[in-house]
Write a protein that binds this DNA or RNA. Structure first.
Lengths: 336, 336
DNA sequence: CTGAAAGCGCTTACAG
DNA sequence: CTGAAAGCGCTTACAG
């Protein structure tokens, strides 16, 4: 099976030219069906493998898209991002591209070091999966290659972005809590840490506004500092009956904290998360949460990057993909 | 910055030939130091990026190594394997290679579908990270490309493998349990599911033998069926004082199960894991476990695959890398 | 120390 | 429908 068979080898055996072989193998016009079949059959038999590199050289494209994931996102997020990456690869493949993952180390992010793959000209575009530092993004913009943000956006409104619908997801799940009788609902997350935490807060807030529920100051509970390190929760004097957490991991931490302090979930407090990642089912009780539509997000990101690679002036803007609530055991219905 | 500058462009500006530019940029003999510096400076200024594809074409190598990770390994293992992959990439880079991850879907594994990257001739060797089906491995062997097994091995003793020292890891941690007073120690894992579960069991057994402790039949507790799906634990009539689990995830499940049945950890039962992955610190109490030396394993795997790629007849055999015990809160000292 | 020639495997015009 | 020629960007071996 190991073979270094080239088109020329096939051509010689059949007494045709390599041009004809190329046309046949690529299903192009200009070869009789009969000959085409003969060539394909022989190629198969000889174990011919297409040499992408030659094609790449010819038309100056690598047919690679690099998916950059910051190392900072560990554990739970990683496995979520990995799932996203898998979807991306599958969808890129339909378009003849290959998706290459690049886990950006903390040092490289700080040192503004671009992936080697870029310096080696082996990439046509980048999908940035997960919030990167402003400085790094600025560096990436300088190289003027097609870029798409995935699962975040920032003030660079000239870069296409695909995000979860954080705002409406949080809005929906808060509405759900209210519909089962809750009115004292806290939000857990540092509003200044990431854009998604902020947007989820705003969705929560919109739900409160619509139901004429006052937003109490001490009902916005910090879960981390602005660099992302988790901190101990500062619970309010008067406890709410429900908590909207900005992500499942934090919901997990909060539930542990509450349980340690003698609260039963969901009897004493209801807790909801966001993401439906590994933490949602690791937590006891399992979390009611918002599931992100990974497949649809990947599909959009791939479309956007392909559009850009074909024509760099294409603009798709920011698109948010709607998630859906997954109902589990962390919410109690309250008597009205 | 976006540039399609070639060596020829640099050469023309300097009125030299592209051969000279090539030599200068690659630090080869045959260019005066003065000219070399001038060329390098200009290349920098013009934003020249080396075109790896051209080199690849020339010498028929892709300088890519594909790291195959079966999708079946989810959650915790994924993040462990991802860490391993990161180390691999870093070390491959030192040797001028690029590591490309390929997450092998369940369907592709069953359908014996090789990675597209192989069919496109964009890979020089494979690192198989995580146990694959016999059939898939047989398929891979057929293509006669350099292969290294990482974190597992099987009956193919002609393929180099780098594994954790499962045997001595389990042996060490069982010895530790005995040293703090335990004598009724159970093992948790299905011995016929994977080679590492089996080897860890044997290490555990060796420790018992050395301490003249009888191995009781009902002290080997199944955690999963032979396909890897977790099953409910069948606890022995007479409870042991300690459990050696084949991995942290199972230790986590076991502790939950024990706690539900009214046992306190570690007061009533001690539990140890293996891997030191995300579950080790997710579990309450945190797990005493065996930490795998990821960096050293990656270093070996890279060395082996590079050796093979240079000379396919090189044999390194099976190498196991020693781990170390991480002490946490899941073990109680027993009065002697 | 420097460079002209040939070649890696393919494709794109173009000619027949 | 078929193929000779040229070129993608680089390197190797050889000549000067």
């Amino acid at each position: 099976m190991k073979s270094n068979v080239t088109m020329k080898d096939i051509a010689e055996k059949l007494n045709v030219s390599s041009v004809t072989v190329s046309k046949a193998l690529n299903d192009k016009e200009g070869v009789s069906d009969e000959l085409k079949e003969k060539i394909k059959a022989l190629a198969d038999k000889m174990g011919y493998r297409y040499n992408t590199m030659a094609k790449s050289m010819k038309d100056g494209k690598s047919y690679n898209v690099c998916v950059i994931i910051p190392e900072r996102f560990t554990g739970a997020v990683q496995s979520f991002y990995l799932k996203m990456y898998q979807s991306i690869v599958k969808i890129l493949e339909e378009r003849g591209y290959y998706g290459i993952i690049h886990i950006l180390s903390v040092e490289d992010e700080e040192g503004l070091k671009l992936p080697r793959i870029y310096h080696e000209r082996r990439v046509d575009g980048f999908i940035l999966l997960g919030q990167l530092s402003k400085e790094y993004i600025a560096e990436m913009k300088k190289i003027e290659m097609p870029i798409v943000f995935l699962d975040f956006y920032d003030e660079n409104d000239d870069i296409d972005a695909v995000i979860t619908d954080n705002f409406y997801g949080a809005y929906d799940i808060t509405n759900y809590l209210i519909s089962v009788g809750h009115r004292d609902i806290a939000y857990v997350g540092n509003l200044f840490a990431t854009s998604s935490i902020q947007d989820r807060f705003l969705g929560y807030y919109k739900s409160l506004l619509e139901h004429k529920i006052e937003l109490k100051n001490d009902y916005v509970i910090k879960d981390r500092d602005e660099l992302g390190t988790f901190i101990t929760f500062d619970l309010p004097e008067q406890m709410p009956t429900a908590f909207v957490c900005n992500c499942d991991q934090v919901a997990n931490l909060l539930i542990e904290h509450l349980q340690k302090n003698g609260f039963r979930i969901p009897e004493d407090c209801s807790v909801v998360g966001f993401d439906n990642d590994i933490y949602a089912t690791l937590t006891t009780p399992n979390l009611t949460t918002v599931e992100v539509d990974v497949e649809e997000m990947a599909r959009n990101a791939v479309k956007f990057i392909c559009d850009k690679m074909e024509d760099d002036s294409t603009r798709n803007g920011r698109v948010s993909v709607k998630g859906s609530i997954i109902y589990r055991e962390s919410v109690a219905k309250l008597p009205k």
